[in-house]
Simulated assay, not measured.
Amino acid sequence: MSEDEPRIVVGVDGSPGSRDALRWALRYAERCGGTVTALIAWAPPVLVEAAPVPPVISDEEVRTRAEQVLRRVVEETAAELATSVPVHQDAVCGPAAGSLLERARDADLLVVGSRGHGGFVGALLGSVSQHCVTHARCPVVVVRPAAR
């Protein structure tokens, strides 16, 4: 990777909105000769005392599942577009918005979907995308859902 290649960070969580964002980022990178970092953020399971207590999932299992989701979404989307854009995959432990902002600190562009896994249906802009738009040091593209 040369310093002249635009660096694009995209949030991926497996949702249709994040797949649209990855698709957009890959197409953009293809046109400008950039590289893409696809990031999924995961958090350790939170235990709340309630009866009955379900089996506990370990941090390692959560990390592994996040990496599997990321790998699958990147592979499927790259194959669908028949692109050879370099995609670096990054699974990080932490809140999605903060993790994206940290990774995009020195990026040329941050791409997010308008809604992911969370929030409520019908929100115009999800909390992660809103936080990124408000706090990112680089330009942010919020990809609206594709017509389905």
Rank of each mutant, 00 (worst) to 15 (best):
M1Q: 15
M1H: 12
M1C: 13
E5F: 14
P6I: 13
R7N: 03
I8F: 14
V9D: 02
V10H: 01
V10D: 00
G11H: 01
V12C: 01
D13L: 12
G14K: 00
P16C: 12
P16N: 15
P16R: 15
P16Y: 11
G17K: 07
S18D: 01
D20Q: 10
A21T: 06
L22Q: 00
W24C: 11
L26M: 09
R27S: 08
A29N: 03
A29M: 07
A29R: 04
E30C: 13
R31D: 15
C32D: 10
C32R: 15
G34Y: 09
T35E: 14
A38D: 08
L39A: 12
L39H: 03
I40S: 02
A43K: 13
P45C: 08
V46P: 01
L47N: 14
A51L: 13
P52I: 09
V53D: 05
V56G: 09
I57S: 12
D59S: 15
E60C: 05
E61I: 04
V62Y: 00
V62Q: 00
R63F: 03
R63H: 11
T64Y: 14
E67V: 01
Q68H: 11
Q68K: 09
L70H: 05
L70K: 04
R71V: 01
V74R: 05
V74T: 06
E76P: 08
T77Q: 07
T77L: 08
A78F: 07
E80R: 12
T83D: 08
T83L: 10
S84L: 13
V85T: 04
V85L: 06
V85W: 04
V87T: 03
V87G: 04
V87K: 05
V87Q: 06
D90K: 11
D90V: 11
V92D: 03
C93L: 15
C93G: 15
G94Q: 03
A97I: 09
S99R: 04
S99T: 12
L101T: 07
E102A: 12
R103E: 13
R103P: 10
A104K: 03
R105M: 10
D108F: 05
L109R: 07
L109G: 04
L110F: 02
V111H: 01
G113D: 05
G113I: 08
S114M: 10
R115K: 12
R115Q: 10
R115M: 06
G116A: 06
G116T: 03
G116Q: 02
G118I: 06
G118F: 10
G118P: 09
G119I: 01
V121P: 09
G122T: 05
A123Q: 10
L124C: 12
L125W: 02
L125I: 02
G126E: 02
G126C: 02
S129L: 11
S129G: 12
Q130N: 13
H131M: 12
H131W: 06
C132Y: 01
C132K: 00
V133R: 11
T134Q: 14
A136V: 05
R137D: 12
R137E: 15
C138A: 08
C138Q: 04
C138D: 04
P139E: 09
V140S: 07
V142Y: 02
V143D: 11
V143Q: 10
V143K: 11
P145H: 14
A146Y: 08
A146V: 06
